[in-house]
Simulated assay, not measured.
Amino acid sequence: MAKITFKGKEVTLLGSELKAGDKAPDFTVLANDLSEVTLADSKGRARLISVVPSIDTGVCDAQTRRFNEEASQLNNMSVLTISTDLPFAQRRWCGANGIENVQTLSDHRDMSFGEAYGVYIKEMRLLARAVFVIDSNDQVTYAEYVSEATNHPDYEAVMEAVRALQ
């Protein structure tokens, strides 16, 4: 199980840690219009899944903007940002920040994604910062659990894994 800290304090992650080579588990999250979204909805496409604790914080904002920028240059790849923020807050934030290439999704209702991907922070009911790259056959090709939730992921390593699928 991945060990992470949040502002220096160790937290408990619920679910199983994923590694490259694992089959990506299904999940159900909410789109900004409250419709359900599952992994199967993007079947046949590669996916970059960026996981953030809350889109309204500095590092989460920067991470989402970075992957939005990168997404504009990707072919046949879905770029998803998942947090526990309410869908309404995600929609407002995207509109205010011109985010058009990333689909923001909420795990607030069921924590389905958090448990399936091992990023559910038990003590805070938030998701730990992580990035997953999944190929079009639902195989995890890259998994990064950021050891300190207030730090950035390794953007270069993520994009190298993405480019390997292009």
Rank of each mutant, 00 (worst) to 15 (best):
C60M: 03
V102Q: 12
V51D: 08
S78A: 15
E70M: 13
L74H: 03
G98H: 10
E115C: 01
G98R: 09
M111R: 14
M111A: 04
I55V: 14
N76Q: 14
V79I: 04
F132A: 00
A71L: 01
R129D: 07
V59G: 06
S106T: 04
V131P: 06
D107T: 08
G118M: 12
D85A: 11
G95S: 11
T104Q: 12
L126Y: 04
D107G: 04
E70H: 07
G98S: 11
Q73F: 13
V133H: 10
Q73R: 13
G58C: 02
S78D: 15
G58S: 13
G98P: 02
L105Q: 11
E69N: 11
L126M: 11
F67T: 00
A130C: 07
E123S: 06
R125D: 05
Y120T: 03
W93Y: 13
Y120I: 00
L86F: 15
Q103K: 13
P53F: 05
G95T: 07
A62L: 13
G114T: 04
A96P: 01
I49W: 12
V131Y: 12
T64R: 03
C94R: 09
C60R: 02
G58D: 11
A96G: 12
T64I: 15
T81E: 14
P87N: 09
S78P: 05
V133L: 04
F132H: 03
A116S: 15
E70I: 08
V79W: 05
S72P: 03
N101K: 07
D110C: 03
F132I: 00
D110N: 09
M77S: 06
E69M: 10
I82L: 05
V102P: 04
A71C: 04
S72N: 08
L86A: 14
I121A: 03
D110P: 00
